[in-house]
Amino acid sequence: MTAPIETTKSAASAQPEEVLAGASGKQIEGRSLGRIAWTRLKRDKVAMAGGVVVVLLILVAILSKPIQAIFGLDPNAFHQSLVDPTLLAPKGAFGGISWHHPFGVEPQTGRDIFARILDGSWVSLLVAGGATMLSVCIGVVMGVVAGFYGGWVDSTISRVMDTFLAFPLLLFAISISATLQGKAFGLSGLTLRIAVLVFVIGFFNWPYMGRIVRAQTLSLREREFVEASRSLGARGVFILFRELLPNLVAPILVYATLLIPTNILFEASLSYLGVGIEPPQSSWGGMLNQATDLYQVDPMFMVIPGVAIFVTVLAFNLLGDGLRDALDPRGK
């Protein structure tokens, strides 16, 4: 009776590593917060569809010039032979849609609409992206400083934000864009127009980002990890860049994604009013402006740039909503 008892005792006294050695050779691997957020985002099919459309739009905008060169597209080439001289409407059905002109041609001028949509894509995304980066940079710096230091610093920056928010932004943008014509600051032509739009849209929109970052900073500065950094002798600048900013990446990324479509609409509005991108450079808002007087002749001339703006804004909004749910599921 002793042999079985000894066998049982030796098995019971075995080390856990020896017992688990043959169970599995795989180690348990932890997941980072970014990986967890990516897993949540992949489950959101609508957000992923919006992200795919956003990536495609960015690629089209970046490669618009090479695509035009490869297929021999010219957004400013006139094709009078494709326009009815009596009605000034494109020949054929649905605005002259054909294999060579998949979106048809413009009334009166006969310019290829597909080439102009392609050429206007990089303008809209460049202006919206540049303005968003400017708003994010200014808003993050001002919001973090105001929320972290508090006191008179917070009061001063908050009053500056209120002052900027009191500006009638659209009227201010129209006046600045209409004033800076020709040549200014060493820039001219299309470069000047894009720089003016980026400055006007980005510089006067930063208080929205600043308020969000300030509110998040006010919450984070009372957390335990900030107190631990202070107790170890860390100074304000170190805490700002090493403790607070990494924890603000999620709200900054989400709001930046939602700010881009707003800036796209703002640029399209200015171009529609005639104070944005000037011809002959095509822009989606400018195409809508031209279609205002010609939609009865060719409704497709208004529908196509409108759909381009709608799809772009919708895709960014869907991606932004998905990022918000993935990075902060408790905020649903």
Rank of each mutant, 00 (worst) to 15 (best):
F78C: 02
D84P: 10
F78K: 12
A21T: 05
A47L: 10
A23T: 13
V54R: 12
P4C: 01
A11M: 09
V53K: 09
D74P: 09
K42C: 10
W38G: 02
S81C: 04
Q27W: 05
K45H: 14
S64T: 12
A77S: 11
N76L: 06
H79D: 05
R40E: 02
I5N: 04
S13Q: 13
E6D: 10
I67H: 06
T2S: 12
Q15H: 08
R43P: 00
P75T: 04
I67W: 06
S32Q: 04
R43K: 15
A37Y: 08
K9H: 07
V54E: 07
A61R: 03
L20H: 07
F78V: 01
A14L: 10
V19Y: 11
E17Q: 12
E29L: 15
G30P: 04
P66H: 04
G22T: 12
T8K: 13
W38N: 00
P85Y: 07
G22P: 09
K9D: 00
V55L: 14
S10W: 05
P85A: 06
I58D: 09
G34F: 01
L20G: 05
A49Q: 04
T7H: 05
T7P: 02
P75Y: 06
V19C: 06
K45Q: 15
P85N: 08
I5P: 01
V46W: 11
V54N: 07
L20A: 08
V83S: 00
L56E: 09
L20C: 07
K9T: 03
K26P: 01
L82Y: 01
S10E: 11
T8D: 05
Q80K: 13
K26H: 13
K26C: 00
I36K: 01
P66L: 09
T7D: 11
A37L: 02
D84T: 07
A21S: 10
R40C: 00
T7E: 08
D84L: 05
L41G: 00
K65N: 04
E6Y: 03
E29Y: 11
I62D: 03
P66E: 02
S24L: 10
E18L: 15
E6W: 02
A14C: 02
G51W: 10
S24G: 10
A21W: 11
R40V: 11
D44E: 14
G72P: 09
G50V: 07
A14V: 11
L41A: 03
S64P: 05
N76R: 03
L59R: 03
T2F: 01
S81P: 00
T39I: 10
I58G: 11
S24T: 14
A11E: 12
G51K: 02
V55N: 03
G72Y: 04
L59P: 01
F78N: 10
S81H: 07
R40K: 12
L73T: 05
D74T: 12
V19M: 15
I36G: 00
R40Q: 05
A23I: 15
L41I: 12
R35I: 08
K26L: 14
L20I: 05
V55T: 14
D84N: 15
Q68E: 15
L33M: 10
P66W: 04
L56M: 14
P85T: 11
I5H: 03
I67T: 09
T8N: 08
V46P: 06
K42E: 08
P4I: 13
G72K: 14
I36W: 01
Q15N: 07
Q27S: 13
K65A: 13
N76I: 15
G22V: 11
L59E: 01
S10M: 08
A69W: 03
L57K: 02
I36E: 13
G25Y: 04
